[in-house]
């Protein structure tokens, strides 16, 4: 299985979902100056084909609902990278009524990048770090999500003001 894990770390497909303000640093990372395609990372249009979900900065409740839905449409193994402090403790919008304060309560996050909108080179550094984690088999956020799905579901239901919430099958 080493071959699969090695190829999984070398070819990561990123889902094209700009959830927050950090998304404006994604084009420079994708294009000619920083060129993340050197690491085999290309933006893909649909969650079905994607491996990484980038939560670029703060996450409003409305986007969180779409993010969870897209996250569950992705095939395992899948990884989540959180940008900036907004995904850790709400960051600059700590007192905003519409943004989620801690991302890890709703979807498992494998890696955080520091910086209120991290620079492209720190994003690429995170991709390299993710590669090592995958090669070592540590990046198993998706296993955590599958194991304690109930716990994640209750947190999500609390934020969406419903008592029972399922992403896709209503």
């Amino acid at each position: 299985m080493g071959l699969f894990r090695w190829s999984q770390s070398r070819s990561l497909w990123m889902m094209h979902f700009c959830t927050g303000c950090g998304a404006v640093e994604m084009p420079p990372t994708m294009t000619s100056r920083y060129d993340m395609e050197r690491f085999g990372i290309i933006p893909m249009a649909t969650p079905r084909q994607a491996d990484i979900l980038l939560i670029t900065g703060y996450l409003t409740v409305k986007t969180l609902k779409r993010v969870v839905r897209s996250y569950e449409q992705m095939a395992d193994p899948k990884y989540v990278i959180g940008f900036g402090s907004c995904t850790i403790n709400g960051g600059m919008y700590w007192d905003s009524y519409n943004t989620v304060k801690q991302l890890d309560l709703y979807i498992p996050v494998d890696l955080y990048i520091a910086g209120c909108m991290p620079r492209p080179d720190s994003i690429i550094d995170a991709f390299v770090k993710l590669r090592e984690m995958i090669a070592k088999g540590e990046a198993n956020g998706w296993k955590r999500y599958r194991e304690n799905l109930e716990w994640y579901r209750t947190n999500q239901a609390k934020v969406f003001n419903v008592e029972k919430w399922s992403a896709i099958e209503p």
Binding site: N89, W94, D95, S96, K101, Q102, R144, V159
Partner: peptide, 23 residues
Amino acid sequence: TRKYVEEKYGMIDLTKELWKREE
């Protein structure tokens, strides 16, 4: 808004371990 955030998202107290993580 701060009271609303406190009651809905819970003010983030990073010192308290939210749930036991393997690693």
